[in-house]
């Protein structure tokens, strides 16, 4: 029943390079703490991995402090597409995904995607309520009806006996 993942989505494993530029700017904004934040973000950028499966997605980053988040598409509650002017100048946008968990902050933030809008559409299409539950096809329906007919015949037969 799970649909295959489009090749363009399944191919995404790493964030795109402009994200590193953005991280450098972000680190520069911390002025004195630049060496520390730059180092932290360097490792974050270089260890960030995505994996878009048929059922859900996985994102991991970090070496010393390792993080790995797994999320089922069906559990997505809302999708935020956010960007500030600096990110847009670099062609970036963040996708923040919310589940029904207790925190008000997002469960997962997808950064450095080449086409954030396409990703948003993909996630939306997999989300609960975006499409109907798959309808049974006609052959299955006919078979089920024949079975139901046979059952009534059997029940009538048993009653007569």
């Amino acid at each position: 029943m799970t649909q295959p993942v489009p090749a363009s989505i399944a191919a995404i494993k790493r964030p795109i390079d402009p994200l590193w530029t953005y991280y450098l700017l972000k680190a520069a904004a911390t002025t004195v703490a630049f060496p520390v934040t730059a180092l932290v973000l360097y490792f974050r950028f270089h260890t960030m991995r995505y994996d878009f499966g048929a059922e859900g997605l996985r994102m991991s980053w970090g070496i010393l402090f390792r993080n790995e988040v797994l999320l089922n598409y069906a559990r997505i509650q809302d999708i935020h597409l956010r960007s500030n002017a600096i990110e847009r100048a670099l062609g970036l946008a963040r996708i923040e995904i919310q589940t029904a968990s207790g925190s008000s902050s997002s469960v997962m933030t997808l950064e450095g995607l080449a086409d954030p809008e396409a990703m948003r559409d993909y996630l939306y299409s997999r989300m609960h309520g975006a499409t109907d539950h798959k309808q049974a096809d006609t052959l299955t329906t006919v078979l089920l009806e024949v079975a139901a007919e046979l059952k009534t015949v059997r029940l009538a037969l048993e009653k007569r006996a």
Binding site: Q77, D78, I79, H80, L81, R82, S83, N84, A85, R88, A100, R120, Y124, M127, H128, G129, A130
Partner: peptide
Amino acid sequence: IWSVEELTMTFAN
């Protein structure tokens, strides 16, 4: 404007 935010939610949720 400066920070553009877009939110998508399905009615099922």
